[in-house]
Design a protein around this nucleic acid. Structure first.
Length: 476
RNA sequence: GGCGCCAUCGUAUAAUGGUGAAUACAGUGGGUUUUCGCCCCACAAAUCCGGGUUCAAUUCCUGGUGGCGUCACCA
């Protein structure tokens, strides 16, 4: 157990321009774990200052994704769009103190500047044209820029990267308020994190380069910067940045693919973070063992194979209620009526070890809930042959007498039938399997019988016998 | 291009200034089995390259290479 004296307050601050991304989910998880480990709080804040791109649907998608994963927060969600006065107040202070200034440069001029710099092989940056300007041109809505220090450097101790230092000369005067009066990201985060008393900022390492300028803004605002921890990115299995091209990048897409929230959380936690060689962690263990400084510095690849393995583990040994709830959801998606077949918990008990995902499990359980019309050709040809007719007939008679339709009794019935006929278990098992499910793969045959149920089993055996008879008659 | 970050089996992670460099997933080969699967056993697989410090470097330093990130009135 790692105890930290100061409770940590973290925040997850997604911008609502899409669904909850896998990388974002992991960042949120790390934030939650870091906070909970110290008895601190995990805050959710929606960064919707860009009104052009933010949508309510995205906000909902992010909330849904977090809810599904069980990433509950202690405060929020706060919306930046509802905090305009706070930003205005802060800008006012900066303006008054001469730490920010209005810039009337046209986009054209800035564009020209950028091109010229690029052409000269230099870093494109604002040249400070309006930095010391005192007049106020009419008819132009100015943006407000932060007056970044010209000399010296900014350094900070990143909790996962170690010391990072950048020269102020590398930083230019960034825009903190747009012409329309809305704050830009780098300004809004700082104001928010100060107001929300965030003392550990955990975010993707694509923000490392923003940190020095944000620290300058903290100081300009007279606030002590928080601690920072930049976690590495999650790449696709090809080592490239995750994008739609990689298929499922949204968390909820993985639900549809049949994965469990706990498996996803475990996988994500273990991607970039480790505790010795341990692979499986309960939520509580995660909270107890997680330390942000144990997070790796290297970008990692998303490995579906390992997720599958964990998913099966949780399907079999994880939280029963969660697995059942997801199973029901998938059955509904697949159009099954749970009442028309075995109890879902029985299904799960028998099928969990046979599949990695719930989608496969459900798809392969169809015959327990719905009747089928045709046998899978290959399986029928191979196993529903005339020689199987005697076995099936004998079995039907024996099964009709079974008092309790449960695995052990069914197993005995099959064994006795095989013994009576003097044939091996295999000779009777496969024809029965095909008769019951229409194809050649299913749980252990007594379990299959159990799941299909008495009525259906007997009817299907009859049906198979008819099929064999027809085949024989056709001279096959 | 400037700046910044990163570098151990295919993947994710361990470990250590001295080891046979470990574990898991995936892979391969067997075994068990009434199908698939589960399970069991075994095998294969890595310290990016160069220089330095050192008795000893995968580990510390430095150069290179490669990868990634970032250079907006996006976040």
């Amino acid at each position: 157990m790692h105890s930290k004296s100061v409770p940590i307050r973290t925040r997850f601050a997604p911008s609502p321009t899409g669904f909850l991304h896998i990388g974002g989910a992991r960042t949120a998880l790390f934030c939650q774990l870091a906070a909970r480990a110290t008895g601190g709080e995990f805050v959710l804040r929606i960064e919707d200052t860009d009104r052009e791109r933010s949508t309510q649907a995205s906000v909902q998608a992010i909330l849904d994704g977090m809810a599904w994963l069980g990433l509950d927060y202690d405060e929020g969600p706060y919306y930046q769009s509802e905090r305009r006065e706070r930003y205005q107040e802060a800008v006012g202070r900066l303006l008054e103190a001469g730490l920010a200034y209005r810039c009337y440069c046209s986009r054209e001029r800035l564009e020209g500047l950028r091109e010229a710099a690029m052409a000269a092989g230099e870093k494109p940056r604002y040249d400070g044209y309006c930095r010391d300007r005192s007049d106020r041109p009419e008819g132009i809505e100015p943006v407000i820029r932060f007056r970044n220090p010209l000399s010296g450097s900014v350094a900070f101790e990143d909790r996962v990267r170690g010391r990072i230092e950048v020269e102020n000369a590398e930083l230019d005067d960034l825009v903190i308020v747009r012409a329309d009066g809305t704050p830009t990201y780098n300004f809004a985060v700082v104001v928010d994190d100060i107001d929300m008393r965030i003392n550990l900022v955990i975010r993707g390492d694509d923000h490392i380069n923003n940190t020095p300028r944000q620290i300058n803004i903290y100081r300009a605002l007279g606030a002590e910067p928080p601690e920072f921890a930049h976690v590495p990115m999650i790449l696709g299995d090809d080592g490239q940045r995750l994008s739609k091209r990689h298929g499922a990048v949204g968390v909820m897409a993985w639900r549809e693919l049949g994965y469990l929230p706990d498996a996803m959380i475990n996988y994500l936690a273990r991607l970039g973070w480790s505790y010795g060689d341990q692979e499986v962690f309960s939520r509580q263990e995660l909270i107890d063992l997680f330390r942000i400084e144990d997070v790796n510095r290297k970008a990692s690849r998303f490995d579906t194979e390992k997720l599958k393995w964990l998913n099966q583990h949780y399907l079999r040994e994880g939280d029963r209620d969660q697995a059942l709830a997801e199973l029901l959801w998938h059955m509904e998606q697949a159009g099954f009526n749970p009442a028309s077949g075995p109890e879902p918990s029985r299904l799960l008990g028998v099928q969990a070890e046979r599949f990695d995902t719930l989608t496969e499990l459900v798809e392969q359980s169809r015959s327990f809930y719905q009747d089928f019309d045709d046998f899978e050709p290959g399986a029928a040809k191979k196993h529903l042959r005339p020689v199987a007719a005697a076995a099936l007939t004998g079995l039907a008679e024996r099964l009709a007498e079974v008092d309790e339709w449960e695995p052990d009794a069914l197993q005995r019935a099959i064994q006795e039938t095989a013994d009576a006929l003097g044939i091996g278990f295999g000779k009777i098992g496969m024809p029965l399997r095909v008769a019951l499910t229409g194809h050649g793969q299913s749980p252990a045959i007594n379990q299959t019988l159990w799941l299909v149920g008495r009525e259906r089993s007997l009817a299907r055996i009859e049906h198979a016998l008819d099929w064999i008879a027809a085949r024989t008659a056709a001279g096959a």
